[in-house]
């Protein structure tokens, strides 16, 4: 009985609508939180997982990757292909390193697996591209990204 009276009272005096309008008014007076991307960019958090990069080795001459294939083995998305060969001095060389960003799920396992910390993640998150080919990151491209984010040092 009491419930029905209360409901009638609320309906007649438009109480719910009033509450809603009050909230809207309060929010209008608060500063806006929407960022105007792409004009305005968010600062990445520490440890955020963006585009991969390859560091250079201590000599700075070539990539740091030693071609162990552990990143390839651990990658749950099968995004990495490492192909190695024997160099002129019987050393192991990485003849091709390819990361297919179309497959990558940015889990960061590859970074954890790398025994020499060659492959790293940068805060770079703007990865849109207009062709599939652009989504394949070769060793050379990855080293360039490394140079950009890690200053080209070992």
């Amino acid at each position: 009985m009491i419930g029905r009276v209360k409901k009638l009272f609320n309906t007649v005096f438009l109480i719910e609508i009033g509450k809603g309008l009050a909230l809207t008014l309060r929010t209008m007076l608060k500063p806006a939180v929407t960022r105007q991307y792409p004009r305005e960019k968010r600062k990445p958090f520490a440890g955020s997982r963006g585009l991969h990069a390859m560091r250079r080795d201590d000599s700075g001459q070539k990539e740091r990757c030693i071609g162990c294939g552990l990143c390839e083995a651990v990658c749950p998305a099968d995004a990495i292909t490492v192909i190695t060969a024997e160099g002129p001095d019987h050393e192991k060389i990485v003849s091709s390193y390819e990361l297919n960003l179309l497959r990558c799920v940015f889990c960061g396992f590859c970074i954890d697996a790398c025994p020499v910390s060659a492959i790293q993640m940068t805060p770079e998150f703007e990865l849109a591209c207009t062709s599939r080919k652009d989504a394949f990151y070769t060793k050379e491209r990855l080293v360039k990204i490394g140079d950009k984010y890690m200053g080209g040092k070992g």
Binding site: G67, C68, G69, E72, A73, T84, A85, E86, H90, K92, I93
Partner: peptide, 12 residues
Amino acid sequence: STSFRFKARPWE
């Protein structure tokens, strides 16, 4: 062996 050196890892 020269024929296999660094060509692939066993699990691949």
